[in-house]
Design a protein around this nucleic acid. Sequence first.
DNA 1: TTGAATTTTCAAAATATTTTGAAAAAAATA
DNA 2: TATTTTTTTCAAAATATTTTGAAAATTCAA
Lengths: 168, 168
Amino acid sequence: MELKEAKDKFIHTWGTLATQWGINRTMAQIHSLLLLSPKSMNADEIMADLQISRGNVNMNLRDLMDWGLIYKQLLPGERKEYFIAEKDIWKVAKQIAKERRRREIGPLIDAMADLKEGIKPDTAEKEEFLKIVNDISTVTVFADTTLTSLLKADENWLISNFIKVFNR
Amino acid sequence: MELKEAKDKFIHTWGTLATQWGINRTMAQIHSLLLLSPKSMNADEIMADLQISRGNVNMNLRDLMDWGLIYKQLLPGERKEYFIAEKDIWKVAKQIAKERRRREIGPLIDAMADLKEGIKPDTAEKEEFLKIVNDISTVTVFADTTLTSLLKADENWLISNFIKVFNR
DNA sequence: TTGAATTTTCAAAATATTTTGAAAAAAATA
DNA sequence: TATTTTTTTCAAAATATTTTGAAAATTCAA
């Protein structure tokens, strides 16, 4: 397998897998392209490389910046904007986890809180309903708290700690 | 807010959020309907309640069983199949985590392993490429290991352990 | 067995999401 | 300021996913 082939495979795999977990294909492809690129790239280069439209590139570069996975780089003497990916994979993983926590767990916590407030347990049925809402609330808040504290921890502590957990 | 209204809100919220994380809306709605239902339900009841087609109900009940979130219940004297949701929210959370680990992390580990095998580091460029693949491999395997060990742990230990982590 | 009840399948339709590309806006230069 | 380059926007088109519903398969009782 040659390098070009391997890179293409990497980009393709990343793109395909991403769709399975709610990230769109193009965003994942641009991300992997930049991850593998030794130098920063501009919109035209990305368009040419992945054969996609300017609007699509622009949109997804924006999303990737929102996710904190790439940075804009202004090169002196260059009009165009260049983009470079965060190469520290631990940071990448943290960013992804952080963003997914915000998107997936946050709204659930809010929704459960609303329901808890809105219903008073004055019948057996309502009590039963509130039991489930409360259970979900507990688990969700727990997951959120756990993830948050993990994300605050630094890499080395994280690894050593979980080697312990794993060896239990 | 009355009970019916709250239940509808719950089902609707669950369904909407689910789409944000790769689970389809109907599957999430059927799941929450069964989660809130004190008794098991058959396909016709679910169809009537959510106003969806038989095929759709059948398909998603099957998926929910694959996820381990609902069980088939054969009632004596009844021809129809009845379905009941796992009500223990800790088990539900574990099942979801387990399934997502299998779908999201597994294929990534495999893909990285393939790339590592296929490329030999005989040039600087290839070495650089392999560095990234290896980094991703490490983080991914770490996440997988961590999740697996967490899933093996029991609820009480899990909570007490993470209270410690959190208080650090 | 047969036939009625129930479940499953799957092509076509409906819906949702992503992508395009050209026009508008913004930024940089002269 | 006027002009050119670059970025952004967004309605329409393309693509992908979900849903329907009727036919086929299966299951069960007699």
